[in-house]
Design a binder for these strands. Structure first.
Length: 590
RNA sequence: GCACCCGUAGCUCAAUUGGAUAGAGUAUUCGGCUACGAACCGAAAGGUUGCAGGUUCGAUUCCUGCCGGGUGCGCCA
C-alpha cells in the first residue's frame, strides 16, 4: 500500500486500528501522533503514556503491545522503536520516502492531495478592512498579509473561501469629512491624488469640529442628510468610497490580494432593525441608560461590561453592524466558518460579539458557523514603540512598500555587478527581482513570527539573506532552478526515471523534510497560524542547502543523478507551493 | 480597580497546545569555493524559560500569587 499524503494521519489510523484490535478503542485510547525530533525518528506516537497511566498499566508494555498489533504494512514502511517511558518512534524507510516523493510531483497534485481536509466547507475571511477616505498605513499591513495567507491555506485544504473586505465606510466621521469638503476642497489636489486630499480634509474636518462647537452641529447635520439620502451628500460619500477603493487596490495588487466582496459597514445599514428586534425579542439584549446592550451573566467581566449594540441616540455602532454582518455571512454565504483578522486590541469586542451571536443563533435555531478572531500583536520600531516616521507621523503603507523595493534593488544590483559579464542581468530584470524580494521580505517577516506577539520592524533583518527570511527562501528556489538551467533541463519535465531511494545522510534528511510538508500545512491551517508553514519552509531550504553542499547533483552515474534531480525538483515544487500559499511571488533568478 | 496578551541564549524569535537532552537565526570564534549560485555549508560557545509556590511519570506549556512591558474596559471602529 502506498504511503498517503498525510503520513501522520495515516499512522493515527493505523494505531487506532491496532488499539481497537486490543480492545482499547472504547477505553479512549488516543494515538497522539506528531512530527518527531529527527534524533528520534520522523514521527512519534505518545498516546501509550496517557493511556497506561489511566489504566494503571506499565507504559512500556502498553507501547510494546501497540507495536505488536500494528498492521504489517506499517512495518514495511517504517522502522519502529520504543524509547523512554513509552514513546513509539517511526522512521520512514528509504523506499517509502522514494514512493511518497515520486507520487507528489507538482503543485496541482499537492493541492489535490491536501484538498480532502476541508472539501465542501465555506469560509468567510474578513481582513484588511481599512477606513475609506484614509490612506492605508503600516498598521494595516499585518491584517492584510496574514489574512491573505489564511485564505490561501484554507483554499489549499479544499475550502471555498470568500474574501470579504469589511470597510469602515460609515459613521460620524463622514459628517465631518463632508463638512470640510464643502468648505475647503482643492479640486486640483483631488484630481492629482484623491486620497491624499481626502485625508487632508478629514484632518481639517476633525480639527474644525471640537466637542460642543456649532461646527460639530453642522457636521452632524451633514451626516443626517447623508443618512436620509440627500443626493448631494450621497454622491460625495460614493465618491469617497470609489477613490478609496481604487487607492487600496494599488496596494493590494502589490501584495497579491483581490477581494471577492467589499461589504463595508454601510452595506448593513438596512439590516440592523432585524438585529435589534431579534435580540430584544429573545431577551438577549436589554435597555440600559437609553442604549440597547447585552450582558453575559456567566462571564466574569461581561456580566458588568456591556456589549453596546445601539447607542442612546438610536444610532448604530460597530456592535450593531458586526452582528448584522455575522448573520449575513451565515445566511447568504452559508459560512461554515468565519475568520476575522484584526489586532489584539479588539479582542474584548469580538469575544462579546461571538458570545452574543452564539446565544442569538441558538435562540432562533440558526446554524452557527465556527467563529474565529485571529488576533495579532502591534508592529513596533526597534525601540519597542509604535512604528512612526521621524516626524512622528504614521508610516504610509505605499511608502513602506516603495522603500522595501528600493532597499531590495540596492542589494540585487550590487550583487549583479559582482557577477561575471555573461551571467549579468538587465536593469529591468533587477527591478523585477527587487519587487518580488522587497515585498516578499515584508510579507514574510510578518508571517514568520507567531502572530500573537508584537512584531519588531527591522529592514536589516527582513532583507537579510540568511536566517528565516524571504530572501533566503527565494535564493534556495533560484539555486535549484539554476541547476536545471545549467544542465539544460526543463524543471517541468525533470528526467527522474530510474531514480533510486535516498542514500546519503543529506539526501535522507531532505527527503524526510519533503514528506513533512503535509503536516506543516495542516498545522498552519488548523491553528490559523502561518508561521508554522514558514518555519517548515525555512527548515526545508536548510535541508536543501546542506544536501547541495554535500552531494553533487550533475554526476555521471545515471541512477544517482536521477535521484538527486528528483530531490531537487520536489524541493523546488514544495518551496514554490509553500511560498505561493503565503502570498509570495517566486523567481527564476535573483 | 477589573480583565486580556507578552516575558525563553547578548539581540530577534521557535518549541506542533502536557512529552524525550528547550531549538533556530544573528552577533563572537574556528573551518570549507579549479562543485551545479559562498546571498551558501560545517563546527564551537552561548539557558535557573521574569520570580515563588502548586498539580504529575513528565511543565516554557496547566493552576495560584507576585514583578515588569503592552492593551482594553457605554455610546470611535
Amino acid at each position: 500500500m502506498d504511503l498517503p499524503f498525510h503520513v501522520a494521519s495515516h499512522l493515527d489510523s493505523a494505531l487506532r486500528a491496532a488499539a481497537s484490535q486490543l480492545g482499547w478503542a472504547d477505553r479512549g485510547f488516543q494515538p497522539e501522533v506528531r512530527v518527531a525530533d529527527p534524533a528520534h525518528g520522523d514521527f512519534q506516537a505518545n498516546g501509550a503514556l496517557a493511556f497506561a497511566k489511566r489504566e494503571k498499566q506499565n507504559p512500556r508494555a502498553v507501547a510494546q503491545q501497540m507495536v505488536d498489533a500494528l498492521d504489517a504494512s506499517v512495518k514495511d514502511q517504517f522502522d519502529l522503536s520504543l524509547a523512554g517511558p513509552g514513546f513509539i518512534n517511526f522512521r520512514l524507510k528509504p523506499a517509502a520516502l522514494l514512493g511518497w516523493i515520486t507520487r507528489h510531483d507538482s503543485e496541482p497534485h499537492l493541492r489535490e492531495a491536501a484538498a480532502g481536509e476541508r472539501r465542501g466547507q465555506t469560509w468567510v475571511v474578513d481582513y484588511s478592512s481599512p477606513n475609506t477616505a484614509k490612506q492605508m498605513h503600516v498598521g494595516h499591513l499585518r491584517s492584510a498579509v496574514i489574512g491573505e495567507a489564511l485564505c490561501r491555506l484554507l483554499t489549499f485544504n479544499g475550502a471555498t473561501v470568500i474574501r470579504d473586505n469589511h470597510l469602515g465606510d460609515w459613521g460620524t466621521q463622514f459628517g465631518k469629512l463632508i463638512y470640510a469638503y464643502k468648505r475647503w476642497v482643492d479640486e486640483a489636489a483631488l484630481a492629482a491624488d484623491a486620497i491624499e486630499e481626502l485625508e487632508r480634509l478629514y484632518k481639517l474636518g476633525t480639527a474644525a469640529t471640537p466637542d460642543d462647537s456649532p461646527a460639530l452641529d453642522e457636521a452632524r447635520a451633514e451626516l443626517v442628510k447623508l443618512q436620509n439620502g440627500d443626493p448631494e451628500n450621497v454622491a460625495l460619500w460614493k465618491k469617497f468610497s470609489d477613490v478609496s477603493l481604487a487607492a487600496f487596490q494599488q496596494i493590494y495588487d502589490r501584495l497579491g490580494i483581490r477581494f471577492d466582496h467589499n461589504l463595508g459597514e454601510s452595506f448593513y445599514n438596512d439590516k440592523l432593525t432585524r438585529v435589534y428586534a431579534e435580540l430584544s425579542d429573545t431577551g438577549i439584549a436589554q435597555e440600559s441608560e437609553g442604549a440597547l446592550v447585552v450582558f453575559h451573566p456567566e462571564h466574569p467581566r461581561f456580566k458588568t461590561q456591556p456589549f453596546l449594540i445601539r447607542k442612546a441616540d438610536g444610532a448604530s455602532n460597530y456592535g450593531s453592524t458586526d452582528l448584522a454582518t455575522a448573520v449575513y455571512r451565515a445566511e447568504h454565504f452559508k459560512a461554515d466558518g468565519i475568520v476575522i483578522v484584526t489586532d489584539f486590541r479588539q479582542a474584548d469586542h469580538f469575544e462579546q460579539l461571538f458570545l452574543t451571536v452564539r446565544k442569538w443563533f441558538a435562540a432562533k435555531s440558526y446554524r452557527t458557523p465556527e467563529l474565529h478572531h485571529v488576533t495579532f500583536g502591534a508592529v513596533t520600531g526597534e525601540d519597542g514603540k509604535a512604528l512612526k516616521t521621524r516626524s512622528g507621523d504614521v508610516i504610509r503603507l505605499k511608502l513602506l512598500l516603495d522603500e522595501a523595493e528600493e532597499r531590495a534593488y540596492a542589494l540585487v544590483a550590487a550583487k549583479n555587478a559582482e557577477r561575471p559579464e555573461p551571467e549579468r542581468m538587465s536593469d529591468g530584470e533587477c527591478r523585477d527581482i527587487a519587487r518580488a524580494v522587497g515585498i516578499g521580505a515584508v510579507q514574510y517577516a510578518d508571517l514568520a513570527q507567531n502572530r500573537s506577539s508584537n512584531y519588531v520592524f527591522s529592514w536589516d533583518k527582513m532583507l537579510a539573506l540568511d536566517g528565516n527570511t524571504a530572501p533566503y527562501l527565494l535564493y534556495a528556489v533560484a539555486r535549484v532552478r539554476s541547476i536545471f538551467r545549467k544542465a539544460g533541463l526543463d524543471p517541468a519535465q525533470p528526467p527522474v526515471a530510474g531514480a533510486t531511494a535516498p542514500e546519503t545522510p543529506q539526501e535522507l534528511a531532505l527527503a524526510r523534510k519533503l514528506v513533512q510538508f503535509a503536516d506543516a500545512v495542516q498545522v498552519a491551517t488548523d491553528q490559523l497560524r502561518p508561521h508554522f508553514l514558514c518555519l517548515y519552509l525555512f527548515e526545508l531550504a536548510g535541508a536543501y542547502s546542506g544536501f547541495y553542499a554535500a552531494d553533487k547533483v550533475i554526476v555521471d552515474d545515471p541512477s544517482v543523478r536521477a535521484r538527486r534531480l528528483l530531490l531537487c525538483h520536489r524541493t523546488l515544487v514544495t518551496l514554490e507551493t509553500g511560498l505561493h500559499l503565503l502570498g509570495l511571488r517566486t523567481l527564476e533568478r535573483m
